[in-house]
Amino acid sequence: MPEAMETDGLTVGQVSARLGVTVRALHHWDEIGLAEPSLRTAAGYRLYTAADLARLHRVIVYREIGLGLDRIRAVLDDSATDVPGALRAQRAQVAERIDRLRRLGDGLDRMIDAHERGLLLTAEQQAAILGPDWNPDWPAQARARYGDTPQWRQFAERAASRGPQEWQAVADAVTDLDRALGDAMDAGVAPGSQAANQLVERHREVFASYFPLTRRMQVCLARGYENDPGFAAHYDGVRPGLAGWFRKIVDASARAHGIDPDTATWE
């Protein structure tokens, strides 16, 4: 490599500042022979000429559009390389990444909306799926009350991936469970029996559509079903006294698993 006076070229530090490339990258490109400085000073410092800078500009341009270093070398040095073909292939990869990023952006928007709104359904869709007694203000009220809890975050994560069909399946599962609970109460199914315990487990499985429900949380939820006027009205609308009967079968199941329903907390 020819020697030169300092004024004949730019040092690595000067090139780094001028082109916005790290010194480490310049050293690496030099080591692999991709963009070597043509000169060195008597003290051994690298110096880049105008021609070296022109090559570096080309390396940077191709790197910024996503070509790998080996592909850049081929484009710059191999006369047999189909440059337009290489660029078209890179353009196709960029288009795929753009599409993935667009889908990621859409998913993030849905996740944000789900955390803020709960249900990503219009008021009309909510009425059609959840029934005429459904109040579209309930999700906002639930967020105001439970928005800082892990359960709301879990609910939002599930809601973000659901559309009307998925919510219809959830609503159908809830309706089927309510009907099964009412039929079991009418048939005299006793708390603590195998049939009653199976219904308790089914309730936990169905409720997992919203967020995972521990046995202790289920006890608290059943207590709320009986004591909250809105919940009690719903269950008693299925069968008079159903809210109280449901609490009894949940409490009996909890005791069988070593949980005292009287002291159970939301955990």
Rank of each mutant, 00 (worst) to 15 (best):
A43R: 13
E166D: 09
C220D: 04
F246K: 02
I249S: 00
K248E: 14
M185W: 01
D178A: 07
P136S: 04
T265M: 10
D133V: 11
D78C: 02
A142C: 15
D183M: 14
R103D: 10
L213T: 05
D260G: 02
A89Q: 10
Y48P: 12
L213C: 04
W167S: 05
H257S: 13
A160I: 03
P132K: 01
D176F: 06
I112G: 05
Q14F: 13
Q194L: 15
A254T: 05
A123T: 15
R102S: 08
Y48W: 07
L53S: 15
R97P: 13
V75T: 03
R117E: 02
Y45C: 15
G237A: 00
D176H: 15
G258D: 10
D262T: 01
H57E: 14
V83N: 03
R97Y: 07
T263H: 04
S193D: 10
V15C: 08
V21G: 15
V15A: 06
L10D: 15
L26W: 11
A169K: 05
F155E: 00
N227M: 15
D172I: 06
P229C: 13
A43F: 15
G182C: 12
V59K: 15
A54I: 15
Y62S: 11
A159L: 03
I32Y: 12
T81D: 00
E267W: 04
F207C: 07
G258C: 07
W266M: 07
G85N: 08
D77G: 09
W138G: 01
E166T: 02
A142L: 02
T7L: 15
V83I: 06
V94F: 08
Q125V: 06
A123I: 10
S193K: 07
L87D: 00
L121Q: 01
D148F: 03
A51G: 14
R117N: 09
G44D: 13
L56P: 12
E205W: 09
L34N: 06
G33E: 05
L56D: 07
N197S: 08
V94C: 08
G244E: 13
Q141Y: 03
R158I: 01
I32Q: 08
S253G: 06
E267H: 07
S209P: 03
T49F: 13
L130Y: 09
V200D: 08
H203P: 07
D8V: 08
G237M: 05
Y45P: 11
S38Y: 10
A127N: 09
G44M: 09
A54R: 10
A25K: 04
R103N: 05
R153W: 13
A51P: 09
K248G: 05
L121E: 01
A86P: 03
I65L: 14
G44T: 14
P84T: 01
D52Y: 14
Q151A: 00
